[in-house]
């Protein structure tokens, strides 16, 4: 059975996406919608295909069939480097920070999409590059301050605790001022206290931004999401409010035998 939920205004949408990787059907006609200004969760047991959905949206994986729509328009031949310019920003599982760059440089990289100066003027270190560089740095510092990691700006990722690294990665995703944030397990490896802070932080971004969240920690998902999609073995098996999903027999069956920290 294909699961469809009527959505009034999805900002981001997958329509009947199917993906086969080395002979295995990873996604089977997956259609999910992320309403504008919402926090939407994407959950499911291990191997359900959650990250693959992210990878299709990010242009890492080309689907066999189906389409991705953003703001009502179909995205064809998604080029990963154009996502931030379109207003879509993604974090990776883990942190994905550059260890040889300072925290500030990592965040500034996310803002460099705003850099308008050309290669030649950069190479010659022209004065206007300096002014632009200062704007990028100030913006990066402001976002870091917002996330409470400004004091770590000049330290290297390897020298700060893991939860701080996660925050720096979030700052890098936020600094391009995205309309949509795709968060891949933002709570991985952080403590319960930090998780509550993270939940409040995510809620503070809506409705200005729209969030799609892949997460194992049910407490966080149930606490912050307006809408939850449930994947199992590459198919959408349920969708609805946290309350509806929690009591859905199909969801309970899918998670049977899985360790769930509810």
């Amino acid at each position: 059975m294909k699961y469809h939920l009527p959505l009034t205004h999805p900002l981001l949408q997958t329509v009947d996406i199917s993906v086969t990787l080395s002979g295995l059907k990873i996604l089977d006609e997956v259609s999910i919608g992320i309403p504008e200004g919402s926090v939407t969760g994407l959950i499911g047991p291990n191997g359900a295909g959650k990250t693959t959905v992210f990878n299709v949206i990010s242009g890492f994986v080309k689907p066999d069939s189906g389409k991705v729509k953003f703001d009502g328009k179909r995205l064809r031949h998604i080029k990963t480097h154009q996502l931030t310019k379109m207003g879509i920003s993604r974090t990776l599982q883990g942190v994905g920070l550059f260890p040889s760059m300072s925290a500030l440089e990592n965040v500034m990289l996310g803002a460099s999409v705003q850099a308008r100066s050309g290669i030649v003027s950069n190479a010659l270190a022209m004065p206007w590059v300096d002014a632009q560089q200062r704007r990028i740095r100030e913006h990066a510092e402001a976002v870091m301050a917002e996330l409470g990691v400004l004091e770590d700006a000049h330290r290297f990722p390897g020298d700060v605790p893991y939860p701080v690294q996660k925050r720096i990665a979030l700052a890098r995703a936020l600094v391009s001022d995205p309309k949509v944030l795709l968060l891949d397990e933002p709570a991985g490896g952080i403590s319960a206290g930090d998780m509550a802070d993270l939940g409040r932080l995510i809620r503070s971004w809506v409705p200005e931004r729209t969030v799609l969240l892949v997460e194992h920690h049910m407490e966080l998902v149930m606490g912050v999401c307006d809408l939850i999609w449930v994947l199992d073995a590459g198919k959408v098996i349920a969708a609805g409010s946290p309350e509806e999903v929690r009591n859905d027999p199909a969801v309970l069956a899918a998670y049977l035998g899985e360790e769930v920290d509810v």
Binding site: S58, F60, T80, H81, Q82, L83, T84, K85, S89, R90, L92, G96, F98, S100, L109, G110, S112, V113, R172, S176
Partner: peptide, 13 residues
């Protein structure tokens, strides 16, 4: 260092 992360950050690798 990491083309994938660079692309996600909007870099034309």
């Amino acid at each position: 260092f990491n083309p994938t992360v660079a692309r996600l950050s909007g870099v034309r690798v």
